[in-house]
């Protein structure tokens, strides 16, 4: 077994005083692993992956990312964020910057890279997601699928070891889902560690090493996609699968 890159050890989180959103999460992700997390809404999937780059903080347990334990220590958080890229459901591109500026912002300001070099690297990433010809446009001038591919390219500019996807295709028109998934599948084949919250079961079957099913803040079941889809162990996952695959 290869070495672990993310470990959750009895992680708990509450929103406010009463909403127990993550309950005793134990999870180890190994380097290069591709994980799909699914489950009903409100089950804590997004919160789980947002803990990994500290967009949310956990209150109990230990969470270690690439050897760095996440605490209130700002330096540790910065350290982790440099290694973790994230793609959001709503893209979150910066609307006042062009596509190219969206990509070069962090390399230039955080990485102190000269402008010319940052732009060259950015164009490489844009080519990778097949959108180089839109570099000088503003995000709102692009379609949803194009925007999401730009968002992926922006995250890749930081050369992350881990990529987090938070429902990357849920806000897209059906015709655009494929172009985003194609880019993600390509990435998956290049050995980056990926954790993806999604309901695209086709994607899960095609690339995931492991599917994690969550409900009510707990990990209910985890298995290979083949086993999970064909032979779910718990009643809850059977019920969930029958609903999302049932039509």
């Amino acid at each position: 077994m290869s070495e672990p890159i993310i470990t959750f050890n009895k992680v708990n989180k509450w929103y406010g005083n009463n909403y127990h959103v993550l309950r005793d999460i134990d999870l180890t992700v190994t380097k290069g692993e591709r994980i799909v997390i699914c489950g009903p809404s409100g089950s804590g999937k997004s919160t789980l992956i947002r803990c990994i780059n500290r967009l949310e903080e956990h209150q109990q347990g230990n969470l270690t990312v690439d050897g760095v334990e996440l605490t209130d220590d700002v330096k540790a958080i910065d350290d982790v964020r440099k290694k973790v890229g994230m793609v959001f459901q709503q893209f979150n591109l910066f609307p006042h910057l062009t596509v190219l500026e969206n990509l070069t912002l962090s390399p230039m300001w955080v990485g102190k890279m000269p402008k010319k070099e940052a732009e060259e690297k950015a164009m490489e990433q844009l080519k990778r997601v097949r959108i180089a010809e839109q570099a000088s446009k503003y995000p709102l001038q692009l379609s949803g699928g194009q925007q999401q591919r730009v968002a992926i390219a922006r995250a890749l500019c930081l050369k992350p070891k881990i990529m987090l996807f938070d429902e990357p295709t849920s806000a897209l028109d059906p015709e655009m889902i494929k172009e985003v998934l194609d880019v993600m599948i390509e990435m998956a084949n290049q050995g980056i560690t990926m954790i993806c919250v999604t309901h695209e079961m086709g994607f899960a079957k095609a690339v995931a090493d492991r599917v994690i099913f969550m409900d009510q803040g707990q990990i209910v079941e985890q298995n290979t996609p083949h086993e999970f889809f064909n032979n779910p162990q718990s009643e809850r996952s059977k019920d969930f699968l029958s609903k999302i695959l049932g039509h």
Partner: peptide, 27 residues
């Protein structure tokens, strides 16, 4: 300014002042 903008800046490693100057204030 939507919260997602600040989150995206955070995931890109921008500091508080960089986020304000480059992302939040211009918008």
């Amino acid at each position: 300014v939507p919260k997602g903008q600040i989150e995206a800046a955070a995931t890109l490693g921008l500091s508080y002042w960089q986020t304000q100057r480059k992302i939040v204030l211009p918008q």
